[in-house]
């Protein structure tokens, strides 16, 4: 492998991580855009999502050590698992909103945010209690096909992450831009009281934001498992913090910003790891967070001035 090949390889790795962070960052941004709430429970919705994905795959008979699938079966199993994981994770997000956050809707100050930290720990400890502390192997339904690009290797799992993320982000963008509910979400984010007076049922908009964000986190969790071939109760915090950084970097509340931020953080992690050392990845990422907060608190694509009409 030449130096150029090494960087190409890190670029492939970085884009894959970035796609995953982007999926996760979108959930922070959707909820923040509407409630101005940082939802730390999101970290562990992602983690639970990876376990839901693992469970669903085993229901389809895909367990660690089983032969890889191909063709129609592979597509059907992956699509089925993705759907089940997303719907379950989305429902979990809605349940969190309904049970833990709605009663605090009119409470000023940080109570709701602190509650999300509490919910995050509840999920974390529930999984630890029920499923144990050892990490679980993820099955590998994907055949080990790979393509050589120069000296770098592009595997099927990377193509899968990219494809799934692109399609989901495309669907989300379409939903937010062109559907009635999407318009109501944007209107509520820009001026909740005016949206309400147009007849928007703000509760429904909030539920939709939690559902969509959590479903995307579930998809991210499944991708995590398929990419790294394991999952564990601890994966939420690292990935969640990096994705949160991505959302802030892109401009929290801004949908394209979360996608861009995710990709940048993924690339920084891979490239920084290559240039310095993998153990420095978090130092680099969180230094970026600090710099963004100091020099461009509204993020790359965020609005410089607050909501002024």
């Amino acid at each position: 492998m030449t130096t150029a090949d090494v960087y190409l390889q890190q670029c492939i790795n970085g884009l894959s991580l970035g796609a995953m962070y982007a999926l996760l960052a979108l959930g922070f941004t959707l909820v923040y855009g509407i409630l101005e709430l940082i939802n730390f429970a999101h970290f562990n919705v992602f983690m639970v999502g990876s376990f839901v994905g693992l469970g669903t795959l085993s229901l389809f008979g895909v367990v660690p050590g089983a032969a890889s699938l191909s063709g129609f079966m592979l597509a059907a199993v992956l699509l089925g698992t993705l759907l089940v994981t997303m719907v379950t994770s989305g429902a979990l997000g809605v349940a969190i909103e309904r049970i833990a956050l709605r009663p605090l809707r009119d409470v000023r100050g940080p109570a709701a945010m602190i509650t999300t930290i509490g919910v995050s720990y509840v999920l974390f400890n529930l999984v630890l209690l029920v499923l144990g502390a050892d990490s679980k192997n993820f099955p590998t339904p994907l055949p080990s096909v790979s393509f050589a690009i120069g000296g770098a290797v592009l595997r099927l799992r990377e193509i899968l992450i990219w494809a799934v993320s692109l399609v989901l982000m495309g669907l989300l963008t379409w939903f937010v831009q062109f559907t009635r509910m999407g318009r109501a979400m944007r209107a509520t984010a820009q001026d909740p009281e005016a949206a309400r007076m147009m007849g928007v049922e703000v509760d429904r908009v909030i539920i939709m934001a939690f559902f969509l964000g959590s479903a995307l986190a579930g998809a991210g969790g499944l991708m995590f498992g398929l990419y790294y071939n394991f999952t564990s109760y601890i994966i939420g915090f690292t990935a969640g913090l990096r994705a949160f950084t991505a959302a802030v970097l892109g401009g929290i509340g801004n949908v394209p910003g979360a996608m861009l931020g995710g990709l940048i953080i993924g690339l920084v992690e891979a490239m920084g790891g290559q240039l310095i050392s993998a153990s420095w990845a978090d130092v680099i990422i969180f230094s970026i967070l600090v710099l963004v907060l100091v020099f461009r608190p509204s993020g790359l694509l965020g609005r410089v001035a607050p909501n002024k009409s």
């Binding site: 318009r183 944007r186 005016a194 009409s309």
Partner: peptide
């Protein structure tokens, strides 16, 4: 109180 980052048409649709 228009929605400032939506188009005029989208505001009317709201």
């Amino acid at each position: 109180r228009l929605f400032p980052r939506m188009t005029v048409l989208e505001n009317l649709e709201m």
